[in-house]
Simulated scan of single mutants.
Amino acid sequence: MAALLEVENLRVDIPLGAGDLHAVRGISFQVDRGETLCIVGESGCGKSLTSLSLMDLLPPKARRSADRLAFDGIDLAKVAPSAMSDIRGNRMAMIFQEPMTSLNPAYTIGNQLEEALLRHRNVSGREARERAVHLLEKVGITGAASRLGQYPHQLSGGLRQRVMIAMALMCGPELILADEPTTALDVTIQAQILHLMIELQKEFGMGMILITHDLGIVARVADKVAVMYAGQIVESGTVNEVFENPMHPYTQGLLRCIPVPGKTRRGEPLGSIPGIVPSLIGEMKGCAFANRCPYTFEACLTTDVPLFETGSNPNAGRGYRCLLSEQQCIENAKEVA
């Protein structure tokens, strides 16, 4: 059975005065129904542009290409704009990072919730309103009917994010893309929103791509993980595989930065990754992580490193992008454990 979403060799290039910015450089992944894929990485690694490219919401100058970009068998790379408009917000929906800039301040919450259902379904205004009230209650907003007449500025950050989740669910999508949906919220509200999204995903059987830089979130909600660095996926696998046996030096470095209760001593400095991310403008050679990696050798500077498949099941998506042997990577991972 084919995956709900299939992405092979996705690239996003943006022309600039100094040359082309290679923002996303040949990434591949799959998402099944009812499965959560977390794409994790530091700011600027290409996570958000990946999600925007799937929704066909890239900036006008950006160029998207892929060997395969299929949603439920539909070739998204070749679909007409009108057909993509029928899919977007209907079968595929997105929850954006900052709800205050994603919600229109000039329209009520009710207007914005009902709009998607009226656009994609043959329903009356009354039915759309009832659906909006039902979903606002489902996402934990009390007095849902009275909220429909309010404007975004009248709601707290947590409530606005719940409205965004309800809006994404209005048409019962098969795939949700959530771009750092809890970044702007305090820790208590973050936990509530994450718990809510997990429960809703199970109830509706949706596939979900969750984009984040928080490995704590990944550990709690992911089925599969794709670690991105400088526009590439440098490691992928199930959440247990990646956390218990990180293969790539970048993943290992990220995990060293996390304080572990009972292991990290008070006052002890946390781990860090020295150096800076390389420029993605113009021609690139070798491993993008070479200038920050403690294991770099000469070939790393000149060889384009593929994503090596590993593990007993070649279809499981376990892989790492490093010239070190699998055994060397395993030995290095023991330092993180």
Rank of each mutant, 00 (worst) to 15 (best):
R119W: 06
V227F: 07
L196D: 06
E137N: 13
K224A: 11
R160N: 04
P173K: 07
V123A: 15
T142D: 14
M167G: 00
V218K: 09
M170A: 03
G216A: 13
L177T: 04
I189Y: 06
Q192S: 12
G143Q: 00
A222K: 09
A116L: 12
T182H: 12
A230R: 03
L210G: 10
V133Q: 06
D186Y: 00
G157E: 06
L194E: 06
L215P: 13
A145Y: 00
M167I: 10
H153Y: 13
V187T: 06
S146N: 13
H213C: 07
L177Y: 08
K138E: 15
V227A: 11
Y151V: 09
T238I: 09
R119G: 05
R162H: 04
S156I: 04
V221S: 11
D214I: 02
A230E: 04
A178P: 07
V239N: 06
E127I: 04
E137P: 02
M197G: 12
I141F: 09
D186N: 10
N240S: 14
A116C: 11
I176R: 01
E137Q: 10
H153G: 03
V225D: 07
A128W: 03
P181S: 07
D223L: 08
F243W: 00
T188Q: 10
Q150A: 12
L215A: 04
R119T: 15
Q201R: 15
L135R: 00
H134E: 15
L200D: 05
H134I: 01
R162G: 07
G157P: 01
P181R: 11
L185I: 05
A132E: 04
L210C: 13
E235M: 01
S156L: 09
S146T: 06
R147Y: 08
A222E: 09
V239P: 11
T142P: 11
E137G: 15
G125P: 00
G143W: 00
L196W: 11
Y151M: 02
L159E: 14
E174M: 01
L159S: 03
I189N: 02
V234N: 00
I193D: 08
G157Y: 05
A222T: 03
Y229H: 07
L148G: 08
M206A: 07
T188V: 14
I198Q: 14
A132Y: 07
M164I: 02
R129E: 15
V239T: 10
P173C: 08
C171H: 11
L155G: 07
I211P: 02
L148D: 13
E137S: 12
I189F: 02
H120A: 10
I198T: 14
E180Q: 11
G207A: 10
Q190S: 06
L118M: 14
M197K: 11
L177G: 04
E203W: 10
E174K: 15
Q150D: 14
V163G: 02
I217R: 02
D223Y: 11
Q192R: 12
A144M: 01
T212C: 09
D179Q: 01
T183S: 15
E241K: 14
V234E: 02
G237H: 13
Q192V: 09
K202L: 13
Q192I: 09
I217A: 12
T142W: 01
F243R: 04
I198Y: 10
C171L: 04
G125W: 05
E235I: 13
E115W: 00
I233T: 13
L200A: 04
Q190N: 08
Q201C: 10
V187F: 11
I211F: 12
K138W: 00
L118A: 10
R119P: 01
L177W: 06
